[in-house]
Nucleic acid binder design. Structure first.
Lengths: 334, 334
DNA sequence: AGCCAGTCTGGAATCGTTTCCAGAACATTG
DNA sequence: CAATGTTCTGGAAACGATTCCAGACTGGCT
């Protein structure tokens, strides 16, 4: 049987049982050194007997700290994000923080409202790949510390992947395989990492005198990739880089449906290295990002930002990327 | 430029600007019918001008309602859960609820602490596929309403999938293809849905006089499935059903690595119909669960449970399952 | 005009905690 | 012994909202 009472026990109950004032109970529990040992014992015994736990809501009202962090991301259905969120959650738990999750469904207009809705209940935000304009995001800067993941927005601390280097690796790989013309299937126009990847790709292809065909912007999903496949085939490109793995998988799926050989006719490279990239046939060559590290680093930066009372730190962590070569890339057709 | 003030605007500021009392501001915003139209206008104008939003923390202190719900799940890396969470979040947002997320990393011992940690800050819980013992879960029943997803735990309301029927469909499909001996690769022993699926499978095979080989319990992951593949091949089974899609993908992956033809030598059936089941080669035949519906129904049940002040309702929603036939199943080898 | 019912409003109490402030008790020092 | 400091404590004021209560005003009715 359960003995716990239906109604919560408050600090007053403890004070009464211990025969001291509320203030002393509070002090005894928050900072035992500030009360006499005897008082401390009495309070602790009473608190333990009643199974008292301070009400976080009431506490946060006066201290202003909630021990919660808010995570805002565009689409949980993209396997990239669950990995990051999982790492965030695990890390946060280690510091006794709980996590609010808000999925904005790839709608930039939902991001600021999501932040506003959570603002009072969290001590800070982790914005994963936010789609809203810099200016909009900055408009929340005064309220709570913000750390941005997968994007750089002045003046917030950020954690990003070194896309340029990843693209360099991918292009070097394709070049070595004899490819001279590559296509890029871009993600959302509002995505910073899309622009970042494209920038890196342009630099990398230019450096090797390769031809780059930009095949348009699509949704960062399997369907988006599938929709771009035929466009890509209509270009002279012998290899295609996709904004992310989902898009790449969509490309492969459509190529497969049309009987186009991968990598015989065309090579495919993804980005992110989601779990299932290794499972498709052919397994996907992709640029891996340290997703867990992004989550962890984000929490660490946010905690530092909160502790320093400085929401506009200039900390910028750039994590390395690594090309994972699998079966979806091969020699260019002759 | 940002005009928002650093410090939050409170109800007092609105009252001052509107030239009325706090009480009137509160009434005007909470229930416009309770104040004179003119007062309402003044308040609304002032609130709008100051961009005032009531502080949820302060409100919850007095009303006892937080407008948050807690979601506890075993592993966000399993694509099944993000789908459910996304649906939960979307549905909850519609009712102005925010979502706390806690990933317990498949560790049953973390579930109750996760619930306790969130208890004060939420109005109720959605437990997705909880792994902890019934008794442990029940020990939280007094505190806050709980709705269980993918499992039945008296006395909580629950939302489950009709696994038995799904298994019936899968077995009928395999039987029609000529299979007479099938294997089952089970998930975690502590998983209710694993037991539920196994029960359904036993009934279905028995009903058709088919042979069922139980190939042991594995982690509900790709690696778990891969680990069981060789065991399955050592049995006389010509088809294998997996606890979930990840396990099935692991099986296929290992079969592929060993040069075993799917479905030529052996057919594979998954469970859940995660997004990527359709993308592997061969695409996975699987029993689809309405993941979004589970999330939505869970929220609805929880809200009802909270409104009714009755955390131990007996509502049990069982959602239909549907076999999706793809390329991983074929005629039994002769 | 006088009375009553009804509408609308402001002040104050409240939720559970932390923190400020002032005073009590005790010890220390010249 | 007086003066000063230190330690510890309880009362009360916050935090920002909601809600109770009583009073002010309106209007309708006799």
């Amino acid at each position: 049987m359960i003995k716990g009472p239906a109604v919560a026990v408050t600090i007053k109950d403890v004070a009464r049982l211990a025969g001291v004032s509320q203030s002393s109970v509070c002090r005894a529990l928050a900072d035992p050194a500030r009360v006499r040992p005897e008082t401390r014992d009495r309070v602790e015994r009473a608190a333990h007997e009643l199974d008292y736990h301070p009400n976080r809501v009431a506490r946060s009202l006066i201290t202003g700290r909630t021990l919660n962090i808010g995570v805002v991301l565009p689409d949980l259905a993209n396997p990239f994000f669950p990995s990051v969120v999982k790492a965030i959650q695990t890390r946060a738990r280690g510091f006794d923080y709980a996590v609010f999750l808000s999925d904005t469904d790839e709608d930039p207009a939902l991001e600021v409202p999501a932040i506003r809705a959570l603002a009072e209940q969290v001590d800070g935000f982790l914005l994963c790949s936010p789609r809203a304009a810099d200016e909009e995001l900055r408009s929340n800067a005064r309220e709570k510390p913000i750390v941005v993941l997968n994007r750089r927005v002045t003046p917030f601390p950020s954690v990003t992947a070194d896309s340029a280097d990843g693209m360099r690796q991918a292009v070097a790989h394709l070049h070595a395989l004899g490819h001279r013309s590559v296509a890029y299937v871009a993600g959302p126009r509002t995505s910073w990492s899309n622009r970042d990847r494209l920038r890196g790709l342009r630099a990398a292809t230019a450096a090797r005198g390769m031809d780059l065909v930009e095949a348009g912007n699509v949704a960062p999903t399997v369907d988006g990739g599938a929709a771009a496949a035929d466009l890509v085939l209509a270009t002279p490109a012998t290899a295609v880089l996709a904004y992310n793995d989902l898009t790449a998988l969509g490309l492969i799926q459509r190529f497969h449906a049309r009987g186009v050989d991968v990598p015989g006719r065309i090579s495919v490279v993804g980005f992110d290295d989601i779990h299932l990239a290794a499972l498709v046939v052919p397994p996907l060559t992709t640029v891996a990002i340290a997703k867990e590290q992004i989550g962890r680093a984000g929490v660490d930066l946010l905690l530092a930002s909160m502790a320093g009372r400085d929401s506009t730190g200039t900390a910028r962590r750039v994590l390395p990327t690594q090309l994972i070569v699998r079966g979806s890339t091969g020699p260019a057709p002759v």
